[in-house]
């Protein structure tokens, strides 16, 4: 039983879709570690690189011509906020990997600006992940990860790398930026995997 804090009542909401330790916000807070990179669409490129070094790339025109999906998902940040019913448009990672031959089990997502985060490949497949370029019907703004960001809503949102540049397929797991700074390697909000020891 947790310690009771005298005088604290709290504000209950009927949020059965809220993972443990989260609260609901209707804003869209921003968290990033440094300045927001600005990437011109003429220079933008998305790459998938396999464990053998095979490289598939898309220019902005090629990428946005791929079949798109419009997922509406709940997102959960490790800093305790959750936002329900966010509307995105993007390309399923299944589509990007459709013609890629790999035996990799892990992925490192690389961002413009140098950020990295690691995920099991299976968490990006079967309709669970997208590379998103619109939010709420508008082009994704840089502060929220535009031109395009990874969207993996079933994990804490730091796994949804902003300003995505490349997906590196790997045979071994390589911890990324926050994962080497004490945060959990996998980051399942429903099991409250915030920090290394959780």
């Amino acid at each position: 039983m947790a310690l009771i804090t005298r005088g604290f009542g709290g504000r209950r909401r009927d949020d059965t879709d809220l993972p443990p330790g989260q609260y609901r916000t209707d804003d869209f807070p921003v968290l990033s570690a440094g300045p927001t990179p600005r990437i011109g669409l003429d220079r933008w490129e998305l790459a998938v690189v396999t464990e053998t070094g095979e490289r598939s790339t898309w220019s902005w025109a090629e990428f946005t011509a791929l079949p798109a999906e419009e997922p509406t998902v709940d997102i959960h940040c490790v800093t305790h906020w959750s936002k329900f019913g966010t509307r995105w448009r993007g390309v399923s990672v299944d589509t990007l990997l459709a013609d890629v031959e790999t035996t990799a089990e892990y992925v490192v997502a690389h961002s413009y600006g140098g950020y990295t985060t690691n995920l099991p490949l299976e968490d990006l497949l079967d309709g669970q992940a997208w590379v998103a370029y619109e939010f709420d019907g508008e082009p994704l703004v840089p502060v929220h990860g535009g031109p395009a960001r990874l969207l993996v809503p079933h994990l804490y949102f730091w796994k949804s790398a902003k300003w995505l540049r490349a997906l590196e397929l790997r045979l071994d797991d390589e911890p990324g930026f926050w994962e080497t700074a004490g945060y959990h390697n996998y980051g399942d909000p429903w099991r409250e995997q915030r920090y290394l020891s959780d």
Binding site: R11, Q22, Y23
Partner: peptide, 15 residues
Amino acid sequence: DVRLTAPDGYTAYRS
């Protein structure tokens, strides 16, 4: 991280 618990067990967290 700060955790506050109400008498009925309801909790709220902030950083």
